[in-house]
Write a protein that binds this DNA or RNA. Structure first.
Lengths: 143, 143
DNA sequence: TATTGTTATACTCTATAACTATA
DNA sequence: TATAGTTATAGAGTATAACAATA
């Protein structure tokens, strides 16, 4: 029996697209002297402050040990706050600062302007549907 | 002035989704004893045979040096053909075999069945638009 | 001299394990 | 003893450079 016609796998389509998007982000991040993870941290803390570094790491899908350097640098530059919880001095309360929010917003605005290179080829309905579906799939649907 | 409401970056939405998709692929690939790159190679050679390993590497976005082990293994298992071009014995003509195509199709069918976990939450119109847009963006639009 | 494929080396990124300080 | 954070180590994956064969 003949093979059914197949579409490409989702991962096979997503991977090269993501690679290109990341490559386009790199000069923007470099211009603002923020690392990729640093930017992810700023975005996460902009959405909500965190009570522990482990929780932040879990939220952004990183290992808790590999964001420490980024937290050090972000804190040193005054882009985040990171102070021991008086109630439990083991934990570090994390929050974005106004300066951090300004950097994050500037970077994000530039990145999204760059993304028009891709989104610009879509018509209004495609764009709306694509972004909506993507945000739904990315969030992780209920099991 | 107040900040405009922003959507998340494309990369920020694509990255976690891709991570989940890859995690879902791994057991399937393991069951068929094919590496991720091996599967990518089979898919590329299924679409079109290649005249050089460098061309194949470029097509799949890999370094030419890092697919050699995979080519070795695929050839040894009879999943691809890899023979010197009589006209230029430096180059290796690459093609998928029938056995290779069978493995690739089996893996792909399982992977796409697994992807229904994500696509299944979409309605017909969302699904159609999403897949169409993705394939267009992934291909890389004309500059 | 240039090119294909290969091997060897170095580098980056990530994960694992061990340590400290608090509880 | 258990947990949050940190540091040190090791491992995987990738890129860079050198090499052999052929043109």
């Amino acid at each position: 029996m003949a093979d059914k016609p197949r579409r490409p796998d989702l991962a096979a389509m997503l991977a090269p697209l993501l690679r290109e998007l990341i490559a386009a982000e790199e000069p923007v991040l470099a211009a603002h002297e923020v690392s990729m993870w640093g930017y992810v941290v700023l975005s996460a803390l902009d959405a909500a402050p965190m009570r522990t570094q482990a929780a932040l790491a879990a939220t952004i899908g990183a290992d808790k040990t590999r964001i420490i350097r980024d937290l050090d640098e972000l804190q040193q530059r005054g882009l985040i706050e990171r102070r021991p919880d008086p109630d439990d001095r083991r934990v570090r309360l994390l929050a974005i600062t106004e300066a951090g929010r300004a950097v994050k917003n500037a970077v994000q605005a530039e990145i999204q302007r760059g993304e028009e290179h891709w989104l610009g080829v879509l018509d209004a309905e495609e764009r709306r549907t694509f972004l909506r579906v993507l945000s739904r799939l990315s969030a992780g649907e209920p099991t």
